[in-house]
Write a protein that binds this DNA or RNA. Structure first.
Lengths: 210, 210, 210, 210
DNA sequence: GATGAATGAGCCTTCATTCAT
DNA sequence: TATGAATGAAGGCTCATTCAT
C-alpha cells in the first residue's frame, strides 16, 4: 500500500514516464492482463525498480488509483465554476473543463474508467471510500447551487436532473466511441460543440419553463 | 476465425454445454483471465477438442460474439412489437422483452457486456461490422414506425429521440450497476417498474405535445 | 500434497529419471536453493510437467520424502536380520545391508539426510509422524531381540547400547566424510570392512563379559 | 577471497556488528537463503559497503569461515587444560570449555555447524585446509599428553580413543538436537552434567584397567 | 569511504496450444 | 474424433551486485 518514497525523489519527467506507462497499460488491458514487463519496457526502467518503488503489481494499481483520484480532484473538479445556477449551462461548463482535462491527462481518465468497470474488487476500504467520495463530489459538482425554478413545474425536478444528465452522458459516450483508439490529442472536437449546444437547447426547451 | 464445422454435428445439448461453459467463463473473468481449462472441465470435453473445434482462445471468443449476436437477433429483437407508434411506449415494450431475454440468456447478456467493455479493440472487421449492424438493427427497433407527431413541434424530433434513448439507457445502466454480481435470476425487478414508469411520464410530459 | 496420478503411468525409467533428478538437486542444495529449472533439465522433461505432476516445489519435496521413506522401509529396514541377538553383530549386519542400500539408492540417503538436517519445518503433521516413525523403527531394528546378558554386568546396558551405537555411527560418518563427492558406486569399500571389524572387536572386548 | 583491508580499519565495535550480523544471518538461514539485505540492515551499514569490503556474498561467507576458525582457535582451543593425562577427564574438561564458548559465541558455533552441514563443497583449497587443520588441532587437544596406561591392555589404545570420542560426540549431538532452535543462552544445561558423567563412568569402567 | 537506487538474471508458477495415442 | 500429457513462453517477483553521487 505504502510505496517507496524514493519514487518521489525521481525527477518529474521520469515519474511521469513511469506513471503514464502504468496508467496506459492498465487502462488498455485491465488489471489482470496488464503486464509489468510491458510497463517497465515502456517506462524505460529496469525490471526490479517497479517493485522497488511499488512492492508489487497490486500496490502499483492502488497507488495509481490514488494518484488518479488526486488528479481528478485537483485538475478537473476544482476548475469547475460552481456559481452557474442554470443546470444545463452548468453541464456545458463541466463539459468544457472535462475536455481540457482529457487532453491533459488522457491516460488518467481511461484508467479511472477501467477501475470503475473492472471493479477488480478487493480494493482496501480506504480507497473504496475515496472512490465513492469522488463520485459524490462529482455529483455535487452537478447539483449544488442549481436553481430548480428554471424547470417547468409539471415535472419532478430530481427526475428531470437525472434524465438530463443521463442523456448528456449518453451523447458524450457516443462521441467517445467514435474516437476510440484515436489519441485524444489529435481529435478536433471543435465542430462537435455546435451539435452539443443544439442538444442542450432541445433539453432546455423541453424541461425548462418558458 | 472460421471454426471447425464438425462442431455443428454435435448433438445440440453438447453444443449448448460447450457454448454455455465458454460464455460463462468469459463473462465472469474477462478474456484474459478466462481459463480454457475451466471451460473444458465445465463443458465435460477433452482439452484437445476445444482447440479442434475453435483453433484457439481468440477464435473461440470471436465465435461466441457471433453466437451471441445471433441470439440477440432471434431471441430479443424479433420478439419486439414493432407496431407501437408511441416512442416512449415502444421503449417500455423493449424493456419488457429485454428483461425476459436477460433471464433466459444471462450468460449471453453478461458476455455481450464484457465484449463491449473490454473493447478487445482488434476484432476482425467483419465482426466489428456485425456488431455495429446489431446496434443499427437495435436502433431501427427503436425508431421504425414511430409517430413523430406525438412530439412537441418546437424541438427537433431526431434529437429528442436520442436524448430520450440515452436517458433511459442511463437509468437502466444505473439499475444494472446496483445489481452487478447478483445472479439475474434472483433479482426481484418488479418494484422498479413503477419508478421506471415515472421516469417515462416525465419524458412524455417534457417531450410530447399536450 | 496429492500428486497427479498420471505420474505413475510413466514408464519406470522416466519416473526414475525424474525422481533421481529431484532427489539429487534437493540433496545437493537443500530445499530453498534447489532449482526446479535444474531438475527439469536433468530429468529431460518440459518445464510445465514438473508442476503438472507435483503441483509445486513444496509438494514435490513432500512427495520425495514420502518416496524416500518407502524406500528406506522396504529396501533397508526389511532386509535386516532381526534374529541376531548379539548387539554388535547386529550392528555389523545393519552396516552390510545399509551399504547395499547406499549403492542402490545413493540419492535417497543423501536426500533423507538433508531432510533431517534442514528441518525445512512446516512439514504436514502426517509426514512428520511418518518420519518420526521411521526413526523409531530404525531404533527398534537396533535393539529388538538383543540379548543383554552378553554385556558385562558392571555397566548399565542401556547406556552401553547408546555409547556403542554412537561410536559406530561416528566411525561411519568419518568414513563418509572421506568419500564425500565421490559417487558412491565408484568407492571400493571392501578394505574398510577389516578395519570396521577391528573396531567392533574392541567394543566387544570392552563392553561384553568375558 | 581476499577482502578489502580497509575493513580492519573500522573501529572494533563496527567490525563486530558487521560480522555478527553476517554470522547470524548465515547461521539462521543457510548460505542461499541468507539475505545480504538483512545483513546490512542489521549491521547498520549501507548496501554498497558490504560489497566494498567483501566483494560478494561468497567471499563474505569464506571470510566468516576464516574468522570463525580464528575464534575457535583462540577462544576455545587455547583455553583447554592440556596437562590432564586422563583421556576421559580431558574430554570432560573440553566439554566444560566448549559450553562456555557456545555461550560466548553462539553465532560462531551455529555458523560453523551450518558450514559443515551445507558442505558448500567448493570451498577454496586453502580454506578447506585450514578447516581440516582446525580439526587436527582439535584432535591433538584430545590426545596430546594423554597417558595410555590407564587403558586396559587387551585393546588397541588408538581405536579406543576414537571409539570413546565418537560416543561422546554422539551424546553431545543428541543433546544439541533436543535444544535446536532454542537460543543457547536460555538453556539450563546443568541437569545434564550428571547424566554426562554417568556415561563417562561407563566408558571408564569399560575401557580403563581396573 | 559511504550510500542506496538501479539492474537483470533467475526464481517458481501458469496456461494456451500441440500432438502422440 | 477424442484425449490429456507435454511443451515453453510469459507472468510476477527477488536479490546479489554495480555505480553514480
Amino acid at each position: 500500500m505504502a510505496i517507496n518514497p524514493t519514487f518521489h525523489n525521481l525527477d518529474d519527467a521520469k515519474q511521469k514516464r513511469i506513471l503514464n506507462a502504468a496508467l496506459q497499460e492498465f487502462a488498455e488491458n485491465g488489471y489482470e492482463r496488464a503486464s509489468t514487463n510491458q510497463i517497465v519496457k515502456n517506462a524505460g526502467i529496469g525490471k526490479g525498480m517497479l517493485f522497488y518503488y511499488f512492492n508489487n503489481k497490486k500496490d502499483l494499481y492502488l497507488y495509481l488509483i490514488d494518484h488518479a483520484i488526486n488528479i481528478v480532484t485537483t485538475e478537473f473538479f476544482s476548475l469547475i465554476d460552481m456559481t452557474e445556477p442554470d443546470f444545463i449551462e452548468r453541464l456545458k461548463e463541466i463539459a468544457r473543463v472535462k475536455l481540457a482535462y482529457l487532453h491533459e491527462y488522457p491516460n488518467v481518465s481511461n484508467f479511472i474508467a477501467i477501475v470503475f468497470l473492472n471493479d477488480e474488487a478487493n480494493l482496501p476500504e480506504e480507497l473504496e471510500k475515496r472512490l465513492s467520495d469522488v463520485q459524490k463530489v462529482g455529483t455535487s459538482m452537478l447539483y449544488d447551487n442549481i436553481d430548480p425554478k428554471l424547470f417547468r413545474d409539471d415535472v419532478n425536478v430530481d427526475k428531470a436532473f437525472k434524465l438530463i444528465r443521463w442523456s448528456i452522458e449518453g451523447y458524450q459516450n457516443e462521441l467517445m466511441k467514435q474516437f476510440k483508439d484515436q489519441p485524444i490529442a489529435l481529435i478536433d472536437i471543435e465542430p462537435y460543440w455546435d451539435e452539443f449546444y443544439e442538444y442542450l437547447d432541445v433539453l432546455k426547451t423541453s424541461f425548462y419553463t418558458k
